[in-house]
């Protein structure tokens, strides 16, 4: 049994060999200092083949090199949603916090716990363990027999996994309510109005915790605990997109 668990963990954690034998075109452009070219190629790859943690993290690096901190942070954060242990995204965020002056709220204990696995993995674990428990409880009653030993063990194991996954689900839920500030030189407002009094400045790329929306604004809390209102278009949530939104493009009527 232990061998099976180790094999599964190895499959999940071990990086796969490169699917393409040739070096990635974006990677070559990045190495040559052509960050615009790298961004274009990685964006095209994401649009064509889907977003992976590696692609998003690499795109974040290129965006950071171009000085687009909001897009870079969004790419890295989304990469961490897909793979909470992606080394490129982790290094990029650490670099942004130390050298780039980006503010990011400290993780709570639940978020730390949840970062051990991805949000989807927690949900799959919780669901699978729940149904395992239900099945093992229901099966003996359907067969009108006493539960066997392995069924009892499965119930205990399933219930344990289910209980252990609850903090992970909560942490993932709290973590998902973050957003990245996408515009430079904006400030928190005291009230959600155009004449709202500025409370504190926020920089592009800062991570904020979002609360309720109102009147085209959203109430946020910054890394240093200040609360206020930002316009909804000034922030972009972590969940819900592949590539960062293009703020220069006007929305369709």
């Amino acid at each position: 049994m232990r061998t099976w668990w180790l094999l599964l963990a190895g499959l999940l954690a071990a990086p796969l060999p490169a699917a393409e034998p040739n070096a990635d075109a974006g990677q070559m452009a990045y190495a040559a200092g052509d960050f615009v070219g790298a961004v274009e190629k990685w964006q095209a790859a994401i649009l064509a083949q889907g977003a992976t943690a590696g692609r998003l993290a690499a795109l974040g690096n290129a965006e950071w090199k171009l000085g687009r901190k909001g897009r870079a942070m969004l790419c890295w954060e989304r990469a961490l949603l897909l793979d909470p242990r992606d080394p490129v995204a982790t290094a990029g965020i650490r670099h942004a916090q130390s050298a780039g002056g980006i503010d990011r709220p400290a993780l709570t204990w639940a978020e730390n716990y949840a970062s051990f696995l991805g949000a989807d993995t927690w949900l799959v674990l919780a669901t699978a363990s729940f149904w395992l428990v239900v099945l093992c409880l229901l099966l003996p009653r359907l067969r009108r027999r006493a539960p066997t030993e392995w069924q009892e063990k499965a119930v205990v194991a399933g219930a344990t996994i289910f209980l252990l996954s609850l903090p992970g689900l909560w942490g993932a839920h709290v973590y998902a309510r973050r957003a990245v500030v996408r515009q430079a030189d904006i400030f928190l407002r005291l009230t959600p109005t155009a004449r709202g009094e500025p409370v504190s400045g926020v920089a592009e790329g800062d991570i904020v915790r979002t609360e309720r929306p109102f009147n085209g604004y959203v109430r946020v809390t910054t890394a240093d605990g200040k609360s206020g209102w930002l316009q909804a278009r000034e922030v972009e949530p972590l969940w819900g997109g592949g590539l960062p939104a293009n703020l220069d493009q006007k929305p369709a009527p």
């Binding site: 999940l12 071990a14 990635d24 990045y30 990685w42 790859a45 977003a51 992976t52 943690a53 590696g54």
Partner: peptide, 15 residues
């Protein structure tokens, strides 16, 4: 320089 081809078993690419 990052390696974008690095991904896990379940990380197959999403839109």
């Amino acid at each position: 320089t990052p390696d974008p081809t690095h991904h896990g078993l379940l990380d197959r690419g999403v839109q």
